[in-house]
Each structure stands twice: as structure tokens, then as C-alpha cells.
């Protein structure tokens, strides 16, 4: 029983992340197919949300891959083809979110946190730095000079 489980587990590990694109979906023109493939890798499947439509086996992902290829064959630019899907399913399907007013926190939030941390660390280290000795008064200067002079005799 254990051996069967082990074999089954190792076989499961062999299953690589094969692309879900079926041969019958692919375009004859390799340049167009390459473009469609590239675009579909950046579009989220709305059924299984952490997969792109390029990876997903969901029926809807297949439909969207075919629609994407239809658009590209019809002469759409990459942006227009992506726009067609975004118009229907929302910006959520873009695995690389565009820079917009409502995505600023997404793009620059981590940087802001890093800067805040750096600011905190800087303030902390400055507060801990040893105090610099106050400058000597004129009398002390003279005393020091006298002592140095005496010592410097030899």
C-alpha cells in the first residue's frame, strides 16, 4: 500500500505545468500565435483565479483564448485584444495591473514602507550616536597648550 502511494506521489510530481493550449486552438501563423500566447499568459482566468488563461483548462479560459486569437487575426493590436477582455471582465484579469490612480498603493506601497523603515532606522541610529564633546573654553585651550608644551619638551 505504502509503495503504491509512493509511486503515485512520484508520478504526480512528474506532471509539469503543461500549457493548456490545445493544438486545434493555435493559429497557423507562428508570429500571430506567438503574440496570442504572450498576451494570454498575462490574462487571469476568472474561473481558477491564480492561473492565466494560457495555463487554465477551464472551458471559459479556452473560449477566451479562442476569442483572443480571433481578435488578433482580425487585426487587433495587443492592447485592443487585451482591452476586449478587460472591458467584459474588468481590470482584475490583468495579471500585471496597469498603473492607475487606484493601483498606486499596489505599485508604490512596498517602496513607501521601505522608506518609512529607513527613516525610522536613521532616526534611531542618530539618537544613539555618542554625543560629541563640547568645544573647550579659552582658559581650557590655554591650559591644554601649556600642558602640551611641557610634554613636548622631550
Amino acid at each position: 500500500m505504502r509503495r503504491i502511494l509512493l509511486v503515485a506521489a512520484s508520478l504526480a510530481l512528474l506532471a509539469g505545468p503543461a500549457a493548456a493550449v490545445n493544438p486545434d486552438e493555435q493559429l497557423a501563423d507562428p508570429a500571430l500565435e506567438a503574440r496570442a500566447h504572450k498576451i494570454s499568459k498575462d490574462l487571469r482566468c476568472v474561473v481558477c483565479q491564480n492561473q492565466s488563461i494560457d495555463d487554465s483548462d477551464a472551458a471559459l479560459a479556452r473560449d477566451l483564448r479562442i476569442i483572443l486569437r480571433e481578435r488578433i487575426t482580425a487585426g487587433d493590436t495587443d492592447e485592443q485584444a487585451v482591452g476586449f477582455i478587460v472591458q467584459r471582465y474588468g481590470s482584475f484579469v490583468q495579471l500585471k495591473p496597469p498603473l492607475r490612480a487606484d493601483t498606486i498603493a499596489l505599485w508604490f506601497g512596498p517602496l513607501a514602507v521601505l522608506l518609512l523603515g529607513a527613516l525610522g532606522a536613521f532616526a534611531y541610529m542618530r539618537a544613539r550616536a555618542p554625543q560629541r564633546a563640547a568645544a573647550l573654553t579659552a582658559d581650557e585651550e590655554a591650559e591644554a597648550a601649556r600642558l602640551l608644551k611641557t610634554d613636548g619638551a622631550d
Binding site: 471559459l60 473560449d63 467584459r88 471582465y89 474588468g90
Partner: peptide, 13 residues
């Protein structure tokens, strides 16, 4: 039957 009308409406399932 093809699902194309639903896709126009943004139906995901």
C-alpha cells in the same frame, strides 16, 4: 450554446 453571449456580459460561470 457557445457561451459567447454570456462572455459579452462578463459571465464567468
Amino acid at each position: 450554446p457557445t457561451g459567447r453571449t454570456g462572455i459579452e456580459l462578463g459571465v464567468a460561470g
